[in-house]
Every structure is written in C-alpha cells, then in structure tokens.
Design a protein around this nucleic acid. Sequence first.
DNA 1: ATAAAAATTGAATGATTATTCAATACAAAA
DNA 2: TTTTGTATTGAATAATCATTCAATTTTTAT
Lengths: 215, 215
Amino acid sequence: MMKALVNKKTTKQASETEISVNHQKLIDATIETIAKRGLADTTIAHVAKRAKVSQGYANFRFKSKDNLLISSLQYLSDEYKKSWQKIFEENNIDPIDRIIRIVQNDFSSKIANRNKISVWIAFYSEVKFRPSYLTICQRQDEIYSQQMEKLVNEINNITNQKEFTPKEVSETYHSMVDGLWQRILFDPKIYTHEFCKNLVLKYFKSIYVNEDRFA
Amino acid sequence: MMKALVNKKTTKQASETEISVNHQKLIDATIETIAKRGLADTTIAHVAKRAKVSQGYANFRFKSKDNLLISSLQYLSDEYKKSWQKIFEENNIDPIDRIIRIVQNDFSSKIANRNKISVWIAFYSEVKFRPSYLTICQRQDEIYSQQMEKLVNEINNITNQKEFTPKEVSETYHSMVDGLWQRILFDPKIYTHEFCKNLVLKYFKSIYVNEDRFA
DNA sequence: ATAAAAATTGAATGATTATTCAATACAAAA
DNA sequence: TTTTGTATTGAATAATCATTCAATTTTTAT
C-alpha cells in the first residue's frame, strides 16, 4: 500500500538493486526464522512476515519454498567461505599466525553463534535427502580442506614435523570444528568460544610440540 | 482383521509382552522412517505402515507423534549407551586397550552407519527447539564424558603424560567423533570406519607419544 | 499527465497430516 | 457358548501450509 515507497529509488539501475534488496531481505528472514523456530517450523508465511512482504510475493520471488531454502544455504555458505578465503590468501603472514587466524575465525561470534550453527545443522540433517544441500556443503568443504592442507603442509615444513600428514591434521581439525559447533548448540555455557579455541590450539600444540604460539 | 493373530500369545503375561512388541515395532519403524525419508518427511502414516499397524493405533499407542519421536530418541540413546557402558566397565582390561575398544565401538558399523547417524543429526538439529530432545542428548553426553575422563586419567597416570588434562583429551575425542559422524553422512566413500578410527588413533598417538598401540 | 509494464498483494485452493473416535475384532472370563 | 473388556481399525475432522492468481499498487516510458 505505501510500504514500498520507503526504499524505492527512481532510476532503472536502482530498481534492479531494489530487486536484490527484497531477495536479500527474504534470505535473511529465512535464516533468522530457521534460527528462531527450526527448519521444521519454518513456513513461507513466517518468513514473509519477518521480511515484511506478502506471503504470495515470497513464493513468487523464489518460485518455491525449496528454492528459497537452497538460496539461503548458498548464502550462508558463501558468507562463511568469504571469511576464511581471505585468511588463507594472506601469503605475507606467517603460516602459524595464519592458522591461528583460521581458528579465531571458526570460533568468532560472527561465525560460531548459536543461531548460525542451528541453521547449519538444520541443513546438514537433510543432506541425505536433498542432493542440492549436499552439493553446496560438499563444495565448501572441499575447497576449505584443500587450502587447509596446503597451509598445514607449509607449517610441517617450517617445523620439520613429519609424523602427521597435512591431510591428517586438516581432517582432525575440521572434524573438531564440526563437533564443537554441535556442542555449542547443546551447552553454550560450557562450550564458549574461548574454550573451543583453546581446545583446538592444544591439539595443534600436541602436533607442533615446540611451537609456543599454540600454547 | 486377522493380522493380530500372528503374534498373539494366550496368557495374560504374554499379552503384556505383546504390548511391548507393538511399542518396539513402532519405535523401530520410526527410526527406519527417519533414516529413509528424513525427520521432516516422517509422518505417522509412514511409520504405521512400516510397523504394520493402523495409523490410528500408532497415535493412540504413543498419545502423540511428538511422544513417539521422543521415545525413539530415548531408545537410540539407550542403545548407544549400553554399547559403551559395557566397555568402560571392563576394569580388568588395560586402560589403553579399553580406550581402543571405545574407538572401535564408536566407529563400528552397528553404531556409526549412515542410517543411525542421519537419525541422530535429525534430532540434534531440533535440540534448540525441543527441550526434551536436549535433555536426552545432554544426559547421555554427561555420563560418557565423565567415564571418558576417568579412563583418560588412568592412561595419563600410566604413561606419565602431564601436558594434556583428561578433560581436554576427552573433549577433543568427543568432538572429533561428532564431527566425523557428520562427515560420514556427507561422504561415506572417503570417511570409512577405518579412516575415522585411524584418525582418532593418530590423535591419541600425538598425546601418548611412546605408546605403540595407537600407531 | 497518461498509458503501459512491472511489482506486490491477499484471499482462495488443494494437498497433506496429526488427531479423534465410533465401529469392529479379538481375548479372557464365565 | 456367551459376555465382557481390551486392542485395533479406518474413515472423518480440523488444522496447517505451499502455491496460485486475479486484482491492486507502484514504477517507467511517452
């Protein structure tokens, strides 16, 4: 009725931006709704209300609920990827400092908060039944692992560590992160960001015995 | 119509057993249905069909779908608990052998198969919104952790390992298991039971450097 | 300012599903 | 066998929800 006035721009380009604004509003609302109510209780009506558009529009805009969910997972995945991609690419920084930054990122409040984690796990839980969810998650994992192994390899060389392969260290770290994220959901009082970070740093300490930065 | 004849016994006690047979049939069918179709797609109708009882009966027997789901999670939790409880209690066995058995159990095909894991994760994903799910999962975790720390403490004493506390080792192991279970869902080709077991044994090797049984 | 096009609404539709319950089948007791 | 109580059925109910679409509002072009 008048709502639309608020954000509208006048040029054609602005109008195209406008399209993405609604697009993004709906994706944000989807993620928030899943975080607040769970995937099972996330309806188009709830999402539309939160995004402040009509129910019909939400469906029209994304063609289907399924498509909206997939787009939201993709967004979440991209957001996470951007956060670590940046760190892996900082070649001027010492590898050990770089891996510590990766750990800090993985347990930052932007990434490892209960809302985001509950959304991740909601999608994980459907991975076996929705090939499109699986594809998005797998693609993410693959690149992360690849970069992680490269980084661990550098550290192995620097520290002259030969007992544990880059793949082993990378897989262990990765599974620890997934496991700890899950536990943050269960009991965020115990599994604080500090607790989790210290735990994985201790793991690195067990591998790179002489490296004090992991202590 | 005649179905019921098949399993019926004649004495009163047998009749009570009969009650549990249907009870268990429904719980099994629930777990199988979640594994096959996902929690979101699990309806009373599907479960009833798989258990070979009428839809009305399934609901009547458990009072509500919610109650059926909770009972199924409880069953899954008890089953898992029995499998590790036994091992923790084998005090005559060397602690290191005992922890290796724990690892073997956690990645046995009875425990760590894709069906069971997908059911676990389905429930995990709702933990934030269903206090009863959370309670069941937390109670399980608490006892497991407690026993694990006790066991690690023994091993620390035997090996004279002082750098890593029982709590740290236990938490690291536990999070690795959760993380690896998740990854088995993603890619069971890569994350075979052997792969997972070797990975956690390698972790123990990093802690207990001189102990060859972890190699 | 007006017309045409595009965006957005909201109410209607049809499908799905948990739950209820009267009717039936069955078992136990007499 | 007959009666009584319990177990089980299956069809009806009511609620929820994704999806559709004709009508309306807003934007753009003339």
